[in-house]
């Protein structure tokens, strides 16, 4: 059964889109990630224009992050104040990102830029995750103990001015790195259509030394608002959010996520992370191949507007 996507302007098989949404939802539930960094490349592989894939990906992340955020809010593992400071940076970053996005589109380099960003990000993160999980697996096999971490240790980040007290997280921290982190994630949200949790969570833990208990809830809080804002701005400036595509993906995604969570609880963490790392690497490599292989047609036509 085919369904016509009015914004992407092409007919697709509804079952493939449903399957994509469910699979990414399943993985995002299993690994506790938003899934934006998987759904956007998959849509591009399925010939959805990157402009639409990115904007619709951001919309899909809103849905997949909301139930997690609600859970964390109920449990009280969400630092509202920290989340709001992150959000200030995030909204500014998303605005700047959409501006860059529109400019790249005008000069005809958007598709390339999205692909390169994905290749760099996915291969770096995939390699780091794989390395870490393989080390953990080896350690588990040899029954070694984890080296003790000393979370009290301070780094350069903690010497910055403009310090604020975040009661819930029990830390006293400069607002500058928090806003900067939010800004960077906001830019990625609007250019790549990702929530950015896979960068934000490690950055909050290792760089800002925020207690792990509040990190996930707080990052989800910021992701919801930044992705919702990005969806609105993309819809208003680039007219690139496909409501039909987004709805199919979201419905399949949230259902898939529920089953993913159940399976994820039964598997071991290190194996799970190694699997995710391999998946992330595979997507990155596939995108890299598309950049290098000689295209069948080196010309392309874009209609409308004067552009150089």
């Amino acid at each position: 059964m085919t369904v016509y996507l009015p914004i992407a302007e092409l007919s697709v098989n509804i079952f493939i889109i449903l399957g994509m949404g469910a699979a990414v939802g399943f993985l995002s539930g299993m690994f506790g990630v938003g899934g934006g960094f998987l759904i956007t490349p998959l849509l591009i592989f399925y010939n959805i224009p990157p402009v639409v894939a990115v904007a619709t990906g951001a919309n899909q992340v809103v849905a997949s992050s909301i139930s997690g955020a609600i859970t964390h809010f109920r449990r009280g593992t969400l630092d509202m104040k920290l989340g709001c400071v992150l959000l200030v940076g995030g909204l500014a970053g998303a605005t700047a990102g959409v501006w860059v996005f529109s400019w790249l589109r005008r000069v005809g380099q958007l598709d390339l830029f999205i692909s390169i960003l994905y290749v760099v990000l996915l291969s770096t993160i995939g390699a780091l995750m794989l390395q870490e999980s393989l080390r953990a697996l080896r350690r588990a096999r040899n029954n070694e103990q984890l080296p003790l971490k000393r979370p009290g240790q301070h780094n350069w980040v903690h010497r910055l001015p403009l310090k604020m007290r975040f009661k819930k997280s029990k830390i006293y921290l400069s607002a500058i790195p928090v806003v900067a982190l939010g800004f960077g994630i906001g830019v990625l949200t609007s250019i790549m259509g990702v929530g950015g949790g896979f960068i934000m969570v490690p950055a909050m833990i290792y760089l800002l030394r925020i207690p792990t208990s509040v990190v996930v809830g707080t990052s989800l809080f910021q992701i919801i608002f930044v992705t919702a804002y990005t969806t609105m701005v993309q819809a208003a400036t680039n007219y690139s959010v496909d409501i039909v595509l987004a709805t199919i993906l979201m419905v399949a995604g949230v259902i898939g996520a529920q089953y993913g969570v159940r399976v994820g609880q039964k598997l071991r963490g290190e194996q799970l992370r190694a699997l995710l790392a391999l998946l992330v690497l595979a997507v990155g490599i596939r995108l890299a191949i598309d950049l290098i292989v000689t295209p069948e047609e080196i010309y392309s036509v874009a209609v409308g507007g004067l552009s150089y």
């Binding site: 009015p6 914004i7 919309n59 899909q60 809103v62 849905a63 997949s64 992050s65 909301i66 139930s67 609600i70 859970t71 919702a228 969806t231 609105m232 701005v233 993309q234 819809a235 208003a236 400036t237 007219y239 959010v241 409501i243 987004a246 709805t247 979201m250 419905v251 949230v254 259902i255 996520a257 529920q258």
Partner: peptide, 25 residues
């Protein structure tokens, strides 16, 4: 709708996402 009322359209997209996510939870 996407071209003539982009803000309302964007808002509707976000609303669907919120309803879907919340509904599932």
């Amino acid at each position: 709708a996407a071209h003539e009322r982009p803000f309302a359209y964007g808002f509707l997209c976000v609303l669907i996402a919120v309803v879907t996510g919340w509904g599932a939870s």
